[in-house]
Design a protein around this nucleic acid. Structure first.
Lengths: 262, 262
DNA sequence: CGCCTAATTGATTAGAATCAAGCTTTGTGG
DNA sequence: CCACAAAGCTTGATTCTAATCAATTAGGCG
């Protein structure tokens, strides 16, 4: 019966994929409108915490939208850095590519999250940003944003917060990569995704992994075989239920116990 | 003869340690004065790139200095976040402590580098900042800094840059932890320290590792035994020369080759 | 001078990578 | 709309890197 439910949900997602604007959101959520002011992501995205008056100013910065088809790049490493991008719908991965062609996934980005913050420092993009599904982003010219931040203290503060949060998140991942077993990494990864979906108003215990096992493994410093094996084991042990990329967390407590007390 | 030179340098460092103000700097470098304006770190630290007029304003923010004895904490996880700290002399490590008591080193901080940026987001410190040697920091009240940044565009920009650089640096480490062998990690670590010392005007090829093998291992996701073994191997292979914590990089090219083409 | 911490080195083990084969799902073109 | 190809996933057997366990040695500090 779980499988049936999952299959149904997968089917729904597929249908919606064909119409970019109505991205795979749970029933009840409204699709993002054309400006921050009435975007349903306004409380988790850039304009978070801004007074209404300032919101208008931000609206004007973020009028440029861009659609990115699944598998294609929003930007590439080496591109001139001029814009930040807020994910409006869909999902992205950020990938470093070495000269020898090896790839390393450095992060995943869900709606309301900002791409490009790491590039502010050196005015070139450091990574490729690849859409994991048909997606849409708001392009935010950084120069103008910076000017605006001088006039709107709350905006400046929000920018500092977002940058700081990225640092904290990366440090969390370092912790994970540097001192956890494969089992702990997978559990921590699932819990982290769960929290982020919850923040967006999605179900925390059932969601779609928008990335392949290979992407997950690459991100976590594991091989795709190890990821697959451990997801199977978690399934056997009743911690989760997986059907391809649909996953249901059945024992959140158990997963937290595996991660341990970090 | 290398050993003799190294021993001499160790001895010098020790003597200087007893007098905090004249921290272990190479001959020729001037000790930091009491304000940013004439601090020898001004071009690598917070005031980097500020016009002279604005420098005065920053001077007033950064008058509070604090000495931290080796092994003691500048701040602890859970402390209220109110200040950023710029390292004036000495060195720090940032350590996460889990409820179960395990420790994880998340970063090392040299003179001119800023501690606490990750805490802006949640107004509590996330880590313990521990001095690796007798050190001195400038305390910078973040609230006031933020106000000042609204008036000085260059300062705002510099703050964005510093935050962004921290993100980029952490992502570099993630890459390292997630996809490099022990050998590559050590080589990358040594090269990274070398670059940072060079930036400060120290010798790039010979410096003092201010941290224990255990700290290095913890930071790199390795055991202290592995760190020790690999340093020994590098020594045997003529890549480096080590004498306790003094290290000389004898074949930078070779080390870069080990790291590969990231 | 002696104790305690840090570092080195060796032997053994364990966890995840690699190599390999087969299966499922998804997407495409006839 | 079906068939087939490609991509993604699962599972098993084997190998290898780094962890763990253990024993010394070297240095730094009181």
């Amino acid at each position: 019966m779980l499988n049936a439910a999952i299959r149904e949900s997968t089917a729904r997602a597929q249908v919606r994929l064909s119409v970019v604007h109505s991205s795979a959101r749970p029933a009840g959520a409204v699709r993002p409108a054309n400006s921050c002011s009435n975007c349903c992501l306004r409380d988790v995205c850039l304009p978070r915490g801004l007074p209404d008056a300032s919101l208008r100013d931000v609206d004007e910065l973020t009028t440029a939208k861009r659609r990115v088809a699944r598998g294609t790049a929003l930007y590439r490493s080496g591109d001139r850095f001029e814009m930040l991008f807020a994910v409006r719908s869909g999902a992205f991965k950020s990938v470093g590519v070495s000269r020898s062609g090896e790839e390393k996934v450095t992060g995943f980005y869900l709606p309301g999250e900002i791409l490009g913050l790491d590039a502010i420092n050196n005015d070139r993009q450091n990574y490729n940003a690849i859409a994991l599904e048909d997606s849409e982003v708001c392009a935010i010219p950084f120069g103008k944003l910076q000017e605006l931040a001088l006039r709107i203290p709350e905006l400046q503060q929000q920018l500092f917060r977002m940058l700081s949060r990225d640092i904290a998140r990366d440090q969390g991942l370092m912790l994970l990569l540097g001192s956890m077993t494969a089992e702990q990494r997978i559990a921590a990864f699932l819990l982290s995704l769960s929290r982020r979906y919850k923040r967006l108003g999605y179900a925390a215990e059932r969601f779609n992994l928008r990335m392949t096992r290979e992407d997950i493994g690459n991100y976590l410093g594991l091989t795709l075989e190890t990821v697959s094996r451990l997801l199977s084991r978690f399934h056997r042990d009743g911690l989760v239920s997986t059907q391809q990329r649909e996953i249901e967390l059945q024992d959140v407590e158990g997963l937290m116990e595996i991660v341990g007390h970090w």
